[in-house]
Simulated assay, not measured.
Amino acid sequence: MAIRYVHTNLIARDWRALASFYVRLFDCRPVPPERDLSGGWLDAATGLDGAHITGLHLRLPGHGDTGPTLEIFSYDDLAERPDVAPNTPGFAHLAFLVDDVPAMAEAVLAAGGSAVGELGTRDVPDVGRLAFRYMRDPEGNMIELLHWS
C-alpha cells in the first residue's frame, strides 16, 4: 500500500486572517479553490449536526507544487479550546526552518503573534548548532522556529 503525507488541518476562528498570516510570514501558497462545505455527507463524517466549513489549503514551503498543505478551515459553530502548552498531549506545534530565528520571532510578534518562551540554543554532536523558539500565531496555535548551523 502506497502512503503519502497530504495535509495537516488547523481549525481557525477567522480562517482568512490566519491563512494570510501564514502566507505573509512563512511563504505558504494558497491552493485553490476555497472550500465551502456542508451537507449530510459532512454531518456524517464529522459527527456534527448542520456542520458548515469554509477555508483554504496552503502549500507549505520547501516541498514544491505537490508537497503537503496546511488546511485552514473554520466551522460556523466553534467549540472552545484551552490554551496549548509545549507539554500538552496531542499535536503541539508547526515547525518552520528559517534563516534567522530572532528576526522571524520579531516578525511573528509584529504580525499579531506572541512568544511562548525565549530563544533556545544547543550544540548537537555530529549535527550542528540548533537555535529554536516557540511562538504562537494570532489565534494561539504554537509554532516552532528553528535554524541549524
Rank of each mutant, 00 (worst) to 15 (best):
M1R: 11
I3H: 15
V6R: 06
V6E: 13
T8F: 10
I11S: 10
I11L: 14
A12Y: 06
A12S: 09
R13Q: 09
R13K: 13
W15K: 03
R16N: 02
R16Q: 11
A17N: 11
L18N: 03
L18T: 01
A19F: 03
S20A: 11
S20E: 12
F21P: 00
Y22C: 02
Y22A: 07
Y22Q: 05
V23G: 06
V23M: 10
R24T: 02
L25V: 04
F26N: 05
F26Q: 05
F26A: 07
C28F: 12
C28T: 04
E34Y: 04
D36W: 05
D36M: 05
D36C: 07
G39S: 09
G40M: 04
G40I: 10
W41P: 00
L42G: 02
D43H: 04
D43M: 03
A45R: 09
G47F: 01
L48W: 06
L48R: 12
D49Q: 09
D49G: 13
A51T: 03
A51M: 05
I53L: 14
I53M: 10
T54I: 11
T54N: 08
H57A: 11
H57C: 08
L58I: 01
L60M: 14
G62R: 08
G62I: 07
G62Y: 05
D65Q: 13
P68V: 03
T69S: 13
I72C: 02
F73H: 08
D76G: 15
D76V: 06
D77M: 11
L78W: 10
E80I: 02
R81M: 13
R81F: 11
P82W: 01
D83R: 03
A85E: 08
A85Y: 01
P86G: 10
P89C: 10
G90D: 07
F91P: 15
F91C: 12
A92I: 14
A92C: 06
L94Y: 13
L94N: 08
A95S: 12
F96P: 05
D99H: 12
D100E: 10
V101D: 07
P102I: 00
A103M: 02
E106C: 09
A107I: 00
A107F: 03
V108H: 12
A110P: 15
A111D: 08
A111C: 02
A111E: 03
G112Y: 04
G112T: 00
A115T: 15
G117H: 14
G117M: 13
G120L: 13
R122D: 15
D126A: 00
D126V: 00
G128F: 11
R129A: 08
R129I: 07
L130M: 15
A131G: 04
A131C: 06
R133S: 02
M135W: 09
R136G: 10
E139G: 15
G140Y: 09
N141M: 07
N141A: 12
M142N: 14
E144M: 02
E144I: 07
L145C: 03
L145A: 04
L145S: 06
S149I: 14
S149W: 03
S149M: 13
